[in-house]
Design a protein around this nucleic acid. Structure first.
Length: 564
RNA sequence: CGGGGCGUAGCGCAGUGGUAGCGCGCCUGCCUUGGGCGCAGGAGGUCCCCGGUUCGAACCCGGGCGCCCCGACCA
């Protein structure tokens, strides 16, 4: 491709709305252009990167025996009513009406549609197992689109769904996908981790996420520094902490703490480490008000809490509800003599020898409170978020927290959708059985953003070879006819050799050409300039390295070809 | 959904009552070819939209729309 013909416009300055590195670079290098909040155009150069990612995903899906289909983006309300998600999916579901006022959704994911297809076609155990996938645009009316195509409202996703006769078979399908996913992300050249995850609103029992490690990532994962344990924050556990030294022989004692509501403030006032201060928070669980306690240096993991209580979701109680139900002052509540409220204590809080709690009186706290002696929690369980340095639940070595970009997620769905939508097959005995499902997603457009986030320098993108829209770029520097002719010849030869190559045939100043080449980030730069004038040689330079090597035009073609 | 910020040329911005400018980019010519080169000339604007105030509005007032950021667990 000749740069003079490529539809693109590199920018020296990024639009002000771009804040992450990948967003800025993708706009500056003309990969994408924003049309509305969370809605983007992919320009030719960027679109090629998307196609590279999609091709690798497709190859590995096919290798894993999955069959490609294309499902409609528009789906009728009835299907969503069947699964219960017309209501449950909430505002993220893009909805619209047709001219007859019939309700439709623009698919954020396709469990309903595929289950409808499966129940119509996979009627016998003989047709199972079956895994189908598609690569298609998805719609989610995100609360807050962000970071360019990283969290967009319209994005490309590969979604796959497996259908099996029983749990054991479903397990095998899941494993096949897990292997395929690892192959995909390895081939894409990304630094990633597979982590245990909570399955969230898609439902189901168990899932794993594939996280590209990058500081700009919206998710936090806990990863063991020694073994292979890794989980996202919602799921991450830690081994019990050793209880700090000390004991509370003394009985609880009320002390005056005027205007000190937060654990932080109490810690400062008393000059005691924040871990000694208990935090008591209140959650609305159905009709019940539940108190939840963690150490001052810890945070409640609401997803774990919800699981523990056997509910879908917990919400913090409103202040006036708490006051109405207890009559006690917010900010000074404690578990000692707290009437009629079930208190759940975090395991590491319960192990403390002596803590500071609210006294249930304004401007007072209790010191020397010993869990188990001075109050008895209804339940003691690990319900806090893991922290940096916590002991790994598997091996006890320290955990490390890292930011990640979720690029893949695989779920065991179990019977959730087959039950709701009556997706059944006949077994060998002619009896109806529910299909056991799995679902497997990859954010294809997000992969491109994640790759840029992970592979760049201050000059621009440094494409991993597998995703690079072009593998080489010929850059003539000089106007001498023989030099220009040699560059042209090199470009033609590379194309003939099947190399995806860009040719900077523009009459730009050298600085502009080098700057654009670095910004676009094509892996191999072939500079026809001073070394050509002096010795008839091409300077071949890997993007991201300073110094190139000098090769003859013939060798340049051969070497680039061998890289591909 | 709550709070904040911003909408002026493709991008970044200035202009805060008298009918619009700067840098980059774009076009033409000359020049230049190893790191966003120089000179000269040029094109490009519903100043987000609607209404109001005013002799006169990009600017003031009202309403709307759009975009961005922060927050939406620490009692």
């Amino acid at each position: 491709m000749r740069l003079s013909r490529l539809v693109f416009q590199t920018l020296r300055e990024a639009p002000k709305e771009a804040d992450t590195v990948s967003h800025k670079l993708m706009v500056r290098a003309s990969l994408i252009r924003q049309v509305a909040a969370g809605v983007y155009e992919w320009l030719p150069f960027g679109w090629r990167a998307v196609l590279k990612a999609a091709a690798i995903v497709r190859e590995e899906m096919d290798r894993a025996g999955a069959q490609e289909v294309l499902l409609p983006q528009l789906s009728p309300r009835e299907l969503w009513e069947e699964s219960g998600r017309w209501g449950a999916y909430g505002k993220n579901l893009m909805r619209l009406k047709d001219r007859h006022e019939r309700d439709f959704a623009l698919g954020p994911t396709h469990e309903e549609v595929i289950t409808d297809l499966a129940r119509a076609t996979l009627r016998s155990y003989r047709r199972l197992p079956a895994t189908m996938y598609q690569i298609q645009t998805k719609f989610r009316d995100e609360m807050r689109p962000r970071f360019g195509v990283m969290r967009a409202r319209e994005f490309m996703m590969k979604d796959a769904y497996s259908f099996d006769v029983d749990d054991a078979a479903s397990e095998r399908s899941y494993e096949t996908m897990r292997v395929a996913y690892n192959r995909i992300f390895t081939r894409l050249g990304l630094n990633y981790r597979m982590v245990d995850a909570d399955s969230g609103p898609i439902g189901g029992s168990f899932s794993q996420e594939f996280m590209v490690l990058a500081d700009a990532g919206e998710d936090i994962i806990a990863s063991c520094t020694s073994c292979d344990y890794a989980a996202n924050m919602e799921k991450a556990e830690s081994a019990p902490l050793p209880a700090p030294e000390g004991s509370a022989e003394a009985a609880p004692e009320a002390i005056s703490t005027p205007g000190t509501k937060s654990a932080n403030a109490v810690s400062k006032l008393l000059g005691r480490p924040i871990r000694d201060i208990a935090k008591l928070m209140f959650y609305q669980v159905g009709e019940e008000l539940v108190g939840v306690m963690v150490r001052g240096d810890h945070e409640i993991n609401e997803v774990r809490l919800a699981r523990l209580l056997g509910v879908d979701e917990v919400v913090m109680a409103k202040a006036d509800t708490i006051i109405a139900k207890t009559g006690l002052p917010i900010g000074y509540m404690g578990p000692v003599d707290l009437p009629g409220i079930r208190v759940i204590a975090d395991r590491d809080l319960a192990a403390m020898p002596s803590i500071v709690t609210g006294a249930n009186r304004v401007d007072e706290h209790l010191v020397h409170v010993k869990p188990g002696r001075d109050f008895t929690p209804a339940l003691v369980s690990p319900i806090r978020k893991a922290c940096e340095g916590d002991p790994c639940p598997k091996c006890g070595q320290p955990l490390k927290l890292m930011h990640g970009i979720e690029v893949g997620h695989i779920f065991k769905l179990g019977l959730k959708y087959s039950k709701a939508m009556h997706a059944v097959f006949l077994d060998e005995g002619g009896k109806e059985q529910m299909m056991v499902m799995g679902c497997y997603g990859i954010g294809v457009t997000r992969i491109v953003a994640a790759a840029v986030e992970q592979n760049h320098d201050d000059r621009g993108i440094i494409w991993p070879f597998s995703l690079a829209p072009y593998k080489a770029m010929v850059v003539p520097v000089g106007a001498e006819p023989d030099l220009v002719a040699a560059a042209e010849q090199l470009y033609v030869d590379l194309e003939a050799a099947g190399v995806e190559v860009l040719f900077d045939d523009r009459t730009e100043a050298p600085g502009v050409k080098f700057a654009d080449a670095d910004l676009l980030g094509v892996p191999v730069q072939l500079i026809v300039g001073k070394t050509f004038k002096a010795r008839g040689l091409i300077e071949m330079r890997r993007r991201g390295t300073k110094q190139g090597i000098e090769v003859s035009p013939q060798d340049a073609v051969a070497q680039v070809k061998s890289l591909a």
